[in-house]
Design a binder for these strands. Structure first.
Length: 433
DNA sequence: ATACATGATTTGTA
DNA sequence: TACAAATCATGTAT
């Protein structure tokens, strides 16, 4: 611990005031004089040197005591100035002057990246801006904020951890630096320490701490990259929706086949039910519409499946509606379905059909919200009514409602789909215009 | 390995 | 701006 001893070791072999110091041992003067004043002083110095050289072998308490003794020694100032001179001359303090820090490219890279990701830099601006910029590519801004709120939360978490850690390191670094500087200042009373040397020591400490900081930055970068790949870059990655979600979407699609364009509210509802975003719902419907239209035959089975699936519900709803209208409401028939596509022609056909009980469906056209069930039920009825034979297999959900432009015109219903496929002698030739 | 299914993105249009 | 259509890129079944 004692710097004095160390310095003396460094100075090994230097002739000091007529005494040769070798191998860390003070050799007594070769002259045979003793007792004289000069000799006494020389011996005194030799003594001091000896004490200094052996100070490392002593216990801490012992050394401390000896150190104090040396500090108070009358020869100390003289010796100290000599040591200073020697140190100056040996150029000890020059060493290390050339180690100026060139900016580490690796560190710069990390810093830049952290800045770009919004982890480093100003508090709230950079991060969200970067995220927003990265996310602007798709969907509406509102959706993005929803989609990436999780990402942002995680990023700010990383940011917070990074900053606290960084602060901790900086604090520790400062504490350590001041501690070392105090120590050096304290020691500069007993050994020569140039300001340059202190500076060098400080820079060494800083370098050490910055290497620790670099590790922190590195792992922060890694964390951000992982986060990015998991969230933002996952935009492009396709993950199939859950079976349940697909079912819900399909149910909606096929029960609104006449107008498969969910309103904003409906989209939100579906999104909530399916645990996906609104834009995903929009994507799904966009894809579904175009693919359905392109190859209806392929979707026939699916259409039947979902129609049958919701048939019970539809029947329930319609039956309830029938009862309701029959018992309570003598209101105008066919006044419902205002919210969805209305079915002028197919409606006629539909109403002309009778259920097994012989009840007319006329009265069923009541609630504005039964349109979807009606859609489904129509399909089911068309099957149970024995039309399938005439349809040549599975074309009950054929796309004849698509207009010439390929648009989803008002005729996109199962019932209207049936009539054009029917043969000339069809019982339902009258149903659709 | 391959073809097909499917969610996401891009581009053009009204 | 919502949508259609084309396209991309990946998931999945064979």
């Amino acid at each position: 611990m004692d710097e004095q001893a160390r310095i003396m070791q460094t100075l090994g072999g230097v002739t000091l005031a007529g005494h040769t110091v070798q191998g860390g041992m003070a050799v007594p003067p070769p002259h045979g004089h003793d007792g004289s004043d000069g000799d006494g002083r020389k011996q005194d110095i030799g003594d001091i040197l000896h004490q200094i050289m052996t100070i490392t072998d002593q216990s801490l308490d012992e050394a401390q005591a000896k150190k104090h003794g040396l500090n108070c020694h009358r020869m100390k100032p003289a010796l100290f100035s000599v040591l200073c001179e020697i140190k100056e001359k040996t150029g000890l303090s020059i060493r290390g002057a050339q180690e100026e820090d060139p900016p580490d490219p690796q560190l710069m890279r990390l810093d830049n990246m952290l800045l770009a990701e919004g982890v480093a830099g100003p508090e709230k601006g950079g991060g969200s801006a970067a995220v927003a910029a990265a996310a602007t590519a798709s969907g509406s801004p509102t959706d993005n904020s929803i989609e990436h709120s999780d990402y942002r939360a995680k990023l700010s978490q990383i940011r917070q951890i990074y900053h606290t850690e960084l602060e901790k390191y900086e604090q520790a670094c400062n504490e350590f630096t001041t501690h070392v500087m105090n120590l050096l200042r304290e020691q500069s009373r007993t050994r020569p320490i140039s300001p340059k040397e202190i500076e060098r020591m400080v820079s060494i400490i800083h370098r050490k701490f910055s290497s620790i900081q670099m590790q922190l930055k590195q792992s922060t970068c890694e964390a951000v990259m992982i986060l990015r790949s998991r969230f933002l870059d996952a935009r492009r990655k396709r993950r199939n929706f859950s079976k349940q979600a697909t079912e819900i979407l399909n149910e909606y699609f096929y029960s609104h086949l006449s107008n498969p364009y969910p309103s904003e509210e409906a989209k939100e509802e579906l999104a909530k039910k399916c645990s996906i975003t609104v834009s995903q719902v929009s994507n799904w419907f966009g894809n579904k519409r175009i693919r359905y239209k392109k190859n209806i035959g392929k979707f026939q089975e699916e259409a039947n499946l979902y129609a049958a699936k919701t048939a019970v519900n539809a029947a329930h709803a319609v039956a309830a509606a029938v009862q309701n209208s029959q018992t309570n409401s003598p209101t105008t028939p066919n006044s419902g379905s205002s919210s969805t596509f209305n079915l002028p022609n197919s409606g006629n056909m539909f109403m002309s059909m009778q259920n097994p009980n012989g009840d007319s469906y006329q009265g069923a056209q009541v609630g504005a919200n039964v349109q979807s069930q009606v859609d489904t039920l129509r399909h089911v009825i068309s099957q149970t009514a024995g039309y399938s034979d005439d349809l040549g297999g599975n074309s009950m959900y054929s796309p004849h409602s698509l207009d010439a432009n390929g648009g989803w015109q008002d005729a996109m219903t199962p019932s209207s789909a049936i009539s054009p496929t029917e043969g000339p002698g069809s019982v339902h030739s009258d149903t659709s215009n």
